[in-house]
Design a protein around this nucleic acid. Sequence first.
DNA 1: TCTGGGGTCCTAGGACCC
DNA 2: TCTGGGGTCCTAGGACCC
Length: 424
Amino acid sequence: MPFALIDCNNFYVSCERVFQPKLNGKPVVVLSNNDGCIISRSNEAKALGVRMCAPWFKMEKLAKQNGIVAFSSNYTLYDDMSKRFMSILSTFAPRQEIYSIDESFLDLEVIEPHSLVAYGQKIRKTVLRSLGLPVCVGIADTKTLAKLANYCAKMELVGEDGVCDFGQLNDAERSALFASISVREVWGVGRRISEGLLAMRIKTIEDLRTANLKRIRSQFSIVLERTVQELNGISCIQMEEVAKPRQQIIVSRSFGTMITGLDDLSESIAYFTSRAAEKLRQDGSVAASISVYIYTNAFKEDAPQYTGSTIVQLNQPSDDTMELVDAAIKGLKEIYRSGFHYKKSGVVLMGLQSKGSIQATLFDDIDKQTKSDNMMRTLDAINQKMGKGSVTLAAAGLKHRWAMRNERQSPNYTTDWSELLIVE
DNA sequence: TCTGGGGTCCTAGGACCC
DNA sequence: TCTGGGGTCCTAGGACCC
């Protein structure tokens, strides 16, 4: 029962290139929030030795020498492109699991085994033609293998034109292929686990596939045991068509400049909490508690370091921005210490539950609750219509001295009429 | 000067109870 | 008073992912 994994090549870079085709064939990178480090690279940038997660300030010289074009990340654009991508894919299979912003599993059970490769090609061509994004397709009997087949397609190890179907390989071919790839490339095997595996002399994917299951279970966990099963074609990880409701909502940022005062920190916390509360209401959820944290810059080893964090319980689960901000500021005051240069702060909404499931009796003051709901609905409606952050709490401030840098951001081509691409 | 942000799941260990 | 085992629930931290 074959799964396909479709993954966009260098997704963020490819999104930028759709609107600036002259960048095709050129080295391009996209930077993280705050223009901190590199999170997406074109193949040409990879060929120049630009590493994933490399700090941008260390790469600027190389960039200048080689004409690397850098963009600040534009999540509004990427999210919109992602929605279009997922919508196209949904027409190719009865069941789809959206796995990340640029990856999706499809259930290809209904496709004849001998025509899977051609079907994969059709998916590729359709996405490229209608959206301009290059993708690779991996096809196999389990999700773990489909991820691996996708990797093989991307690296051009087997398959052709960006499609790899493991069903086309016989046992000997598969073993030889797996023996040539590091175990680190397996979905679910990260740095620590690969180190542990190495100590057991398990280096390649073939080593892991043929490893003793009981030993894997006892030395590691049931998770890795399932991975080994999946490498052997036994499907243990099912498709999840309906996204589970989120368990927590995090909003955090590094600051564009160091800040020291409680006022600036309070502004940032109020602002982040407002954003988190918006997401919470979009999900139709309420939070039972909120965690607040602040960091100094760990990279500045000679500067005094401090991290503070705390969790504030709400009187009752809430989705009201003002209540959440009050709680967050209370938490911040507990953990704030003067005399430090702060680099980052953040909030986490926790204990999320569906608003509908909260018993009416919990809302002891119905009147107050209705007022709050109306206020939040209005707030969200205005911000939706007029743009993010049009109406905010005074506590979130206007100066935003802590705001992140994003000096190289592209326009919101697809979501803002005033930023449409102009063809000259 | 300058080093991302947002998630999930599992496990171990402590608190508490019988 | 001490001793013991077993169960549940919660939380913190680790590991992983994109």
